[in-house]
Simulated scan of single mutants.
Amino acid sequence: MALADGLGKKQRLMAVKKVEFGMYLGNREERVLLPAKQVPAGLEIGDPVEVFLYKDSSDRLIATTREPKITLGEVKALKVADTGKIGAFLDWGLEKDLLLPFKEQTARVRKGDEVLVGLYIDKSGRLCGTMKVYDLLRTDSPYKKDDHVEGIIYEISDRFGVFVAVDDCYSALIPRREAFGDLKVGDRIACRVVQVKPDGKMDLSVREKAYLQMDADADKIIARMEEYGGSLPFTDKADPELITKEFGMSKNAFKRAVGRLLKAGRVRITEKRIEILHK
């Protein structure tokens, strides 16, 4: 295999020539430099050494004994080290930060953000990061319906919903109808598995089953009513978008929670508002 074919991967190469500025690894036909500060103590000609191959700031193939945080074929959450005119730069454990081009971002990122990325080789033969990791995620999760899981949001679609990588590696989606609250790319969230599809991908919800969620929703409504001075300026017949904006829940969930509060004698509904009943 040509050395260039090992770009982005760990390789076990043989030391073939020692020079003042490092050690060349490879064979008679091809060699790659392992800089002096990366050469393990005692490494001699003919010895094997495990290295990672990437390109330096001059786009030359180079070896390192440092451990990268991601290799080709993997998906990992990395920190944004900086941003620039051509994209963002990710800390991946090597001296040269990993470029995340603007066109590979599913949302604009800022310094300090944590984002889920895959590693790919661009048209010019350089290693770059991409947030478009849908096809890189696994579909063999150990989870089943109603399990509680955690994951990171890596993309948001107006058509489909919120794409989540459970455990940073398993493919999942919060369908649009379940995508309540202020959800953003890079957020780490806890969810409930609604279903595991035949292809292994999961549908998630940020909410519990209706009967479990009802009390929490009722408490949220009471808290918001208190913020409004003891009442809401609308009833359970309000526009669904207003309810979602105010409470991060569907109109049906809102009506169920209000019904619980009515039954408990905690609120009353007038023509234009819902009021707290103080006992």
Rank of each mutant, 00 (worst) to 15 (best):
G230C: 11
A216G: 06
A238L: 10
A223H: 04
D59T: 06
A210I: 09
G93H: 10
K111Q: 13
D199W: 00
Y154G: 00
R28A: 15
K79S: 13
G26R: 08
M249Y: 04
I269P: 01
F102H: 14
E241Y: 09
V115R: 05
L277F: 11
M1A: 12
A216M: 10
D56L: 02
K69E: 09
F160K: 11
A88K: 07
M202V: 08
A253N: 08
F163T: 07
M249V: 10
H278L: 14
L262N: 00
E44I: 00
D113W: 08
T139I: 11
K123C: 02
L33P: 01
D97I: 02
S171I: 04
I274W: 12
T64R: 03
E246Q: 15
T235E: 11
R110A: 12
T130H: 03
V196T: 11
L232T: 09
A190H: 07
D199F: 01
K111G: 00
K96R: 15
K103E: 14
K255I: 07
A264H: 03
T83D: 08
P142F: 13
Q11K: 11
M1Y: 01
T244I: 02
F21Y: 14
V115M: 11
L33M: 06
C169A: 14
G129L: 09
D167M: 05
L212V: 02
I174V: 15
K279H: 15
M131N: 05
L173I: 13
T83W: 09
A165I: 06
P198H: 07
D59S: 15
R268G: 09
G186L: 02
V267K: 09
E275M: 06
K111P: 00
P48V: 03
G112I: 08
Y143C: 04
K279C: 09
A36V: 11
G42I: 04
W92H: 15
R256D: 08
D47M: 07
G229V: 12
Y134E: 13
I45R: 09
Q195P: 00
E246F: 06
C128W: 02
L13Q: 10
D82L: 05
L212H: 12
A218C: 11
D113L: 02
V117K: 03
D135E: 14
F52G: 08
R207P: 01
G112T: 05
D239N: 15
I86A: 14
P35S: 01
A210E: 14
V49F: 05
L94G: 02
D187T: 09
L90A: 08
H278V: 15
K9H: 14
E208Q: 13
D199R: 07
D182T: 04
N252C: 00
V115Y: 08
V109R: 03
T235N: 13
R188F: 09
G229N: 09
E30N: 12
A41L: 12
I153P: 01
R266G: 00
Y134N: 11
K96V: 12
R108P: 00
G230E: 03
I45T: 11
L90Q: 03
D217T: 07
R159A: 12
K144Q: 13
F89T: 10
I86T: 14
